[in-house]
């Protein structure tokens, strides 16, 4: 039996190594919500679903299974705040639970890496889904100390919801998980053209052909800019990175003047739950450095501390 209200926190690469503010925000948010968050010692890259799966599917599964094994040894479900990590770990876990042949194959190779045996005893969760369906828009209100007044361009990213038959979370064509969740936080979701399309970073494209990646992103950004949101919100550090570096690239190469803050779901929720904006690490980001959340306090200071 896995431990209740406890998660093994899978960090991945981009969050701990580029956006530590998302990591501190996620810890703050989950602990305030009453969850115990445990570190996953010796975890590696998930490994990223677009690139490493493309090179060698078996090794991709083995490396992912190794990460899952670490959580299995802790008897806890995994939580991640990255769509890529979720994509890999959830998909491999789902696949190995159904495919006995591959489970044997993976366990054979796992022995070379250390004392690991994949059992299939835990589940892999994304914080967005825990917030959306477990805490819920109905349950978050009691934890809020302030609401944010903002028009938000929500970007789901691809691997949070797709493939739908594997994730089983929400519609990929018209999801509402994040919009519903953000409503009690005060944030207003603004619709824009082609809202649910890709940011252009995934599948190894950002590394393979940066210009192609930017061309896809340029259109995305144009559509977002057309509705002038206060910030862009995403549940994925890789999309986050693309929105940050991408705006910078467009400004330098295409003469744009974008400066939209890019905010991870955890950063926004942590802030609404009382975290100091400075602790969310927004000041370290490339875009929207001057942005200050427009908020409305709803609880006494004492209750916060």
């Amino acid at each position: 039996m896995v431990k209740e209200k406890t998660f093994a926190f899978f960090l991945g690469c981009i969050m701990p190594n580029r956006y530590p503010g998302i990591e501190s925000s996620t810890k703050f948010m989950m602990e305030k919500l009453g969850y115990t968050i445990l570190p996953m010692e010796r975890a590696s890259c998930c490994p990223a679903p677009g690139v490493f799966r493309s090179f060698n599917k078996v090794d991709w599964m083995v490396a992912a299974a190794r990460n899952i094994c670490i959580a299995e040894q802790m008897d806890t479900d995994i939580i991640t705040v990255c769509n890529g990590c979720f994509g890999t770990l959830q998909e491999v876990d789902h696949h190995l639970k159904e495919n006995e042949d591959h489970k044997v194959l993976v366990n054979e190779k796992l022995k070379k890496l250390g004392d690991y045996e994949y059992k299939g005893s835990i589940n892999v969760r994304h914080a967005a889904e825990v917030l959306g369906y477990e805490v819920g828009p109905w349950g978050i209100e009691e934890f809020l100390v302030r609401k944010v007044k903002a028009r938000v361009a929500i970007h789901y990213g691809c691997h949070l919801l797709k493939p739908v038959s594997v994730r089983g979370l929400d519609s990929a064509e018209k999801p509402s998980m994040l919009e519903d969740f953000l409503e009690p936080l005060g944030a207003e979701s603004v619709d824009f053209v082609e809202k649910y399309t890709c940011c252009g970073a995934g599948g190894g494209v950002k590394a393979f052909d940066g210009n192609a990646s930017m061309t896809i992103f340029e259109e995305k950004m144009k559509n977002i800019d057309a509705v002038k949101p206060d910030f862009i919100l995403s549940p994925c550090p890789f999309c986050h990175l693309q929105f940050e570096t991408g705006q910078d690239w467009l400004n330098k190469n295409k003469g744009t003047n974008y400066d939209y803050p890019v905010i991870h779901l955890s950063q926004l929720v942590a802030y609404c739950m009382g975290m100091d904006q400075k602790q969310t690490g927004l000041q370290f980001q490339m875009m929207g450095k001057d942005y200050i959340f427009q908020s409305e306090e709803i609880k006494q200071e004492e209750e916060v501390s």
Partner: peptide, 20 residues
């Protein structure tokens, strides 16, 4: 190598070929 693995084609293929 230009596929971003967004899975849009996978979701919509009427023959369930899962192009991604």
């Amino acid at each position: 190598w230009l596929c971003t693995t967004c899975f849009a084609c996978w979701e919509r293929c009427p023959r369930n070929i899962q192009p991604t």
